[in-house]
C-alpha cells in the first residue's frame, strides 16, 4: 500500500470515531431504564389521562395548558378518563402527586438529555 503512514492513521481515526459509543461505554455498569417514583397506587388509580397518552403527550399537554391558562385565562381541563375537571397547573395538579421532580421528571429527561424549559419559570415545589 502506498502512503500507509498517512492512510492507516486516518483509518484508525475513522474507526475510533464511528465506534465511539462502543468504547466510550466500556467498563461502565450495564444500562437499565431508570425507575420512576410513582404516587401510591391506592390513592391514585391513574394519572389524569392514560399512561401511554401521558408518556407521549405530556409535553404537548403542558404547553397547551400554559397557553390556555396564561394567555386565555381558562383554568380547567376536562379529563375523559377521570370524568373530572382538573386545574391547568403544573405545580398544583401534576406535582401534587408527582411531588419530587428529581425522582420523577428528571430521571427520564436526564437519560435522554432533554432539557425542558418548564423550570425557567416554575419553582420546584
Amino acid at each position: 500500500m502506498y502512503d500507509a503512514k498517512k492512510i492507516i492513521p486516518g483509518l484508525i481515526i475513522f474507526a475510533l470515531f464511528f465506534t465511539f459509543p462502543f468504547w466510550f461505554n466500556l467498563g461502565t455498569a450495564a444500562y437499565t431504564t431508570p425507575e420512576l417514583e410513582l404516587p401510591d397506587p391506592e390513592e391514585h388509580e391513574h394519572c389524569i389521562e392514560s399512561t401511554e397518552y401521558m408518556r407521549a403527550e405530556h409535553m404537548a399537554m403542558l404547553d397547551e395548558w400554559r397557553d390556555i391558562y396564561v394567555r386565555d385565562g381558562y383554568q380547567e381541563y376536562w379529563s375523559e378518563l377521570n370524568q373530572e375537571y382538573f386545574l391547568t397547573s403544573l405545580t398544583k395538579t401534576c406535582m401534587d402527586c408527582h411531588s419530587d421532580k428529581e425522582k420523577f421528571c428528571d430521571r427520564c429527561h436526564e437519560a435522554t438529555a432533554v432539557d425542558p424549559y418548564c423550570w425557567d419559570c416554575h419553582i420546584e415545589p
Partner: peptide, 22 residues
C-alpha cells in the same frame, strides 16, 4: 407526530444494550 411517537426509554435501553454488547 402523535400516532408515530415512540417511547424513548425502551429505545435508549435497546441502543445501550447494543453498544454494551448485551
Amino acid at each position: 407526530i402523535g400516532v408515530f411517537k415512540t417511547d424513548l426509554m425502551p429505545v435508549k435501553e435497546l441502543a445501550m444494550g447494543l453498544v454494551q454488547f448485551s
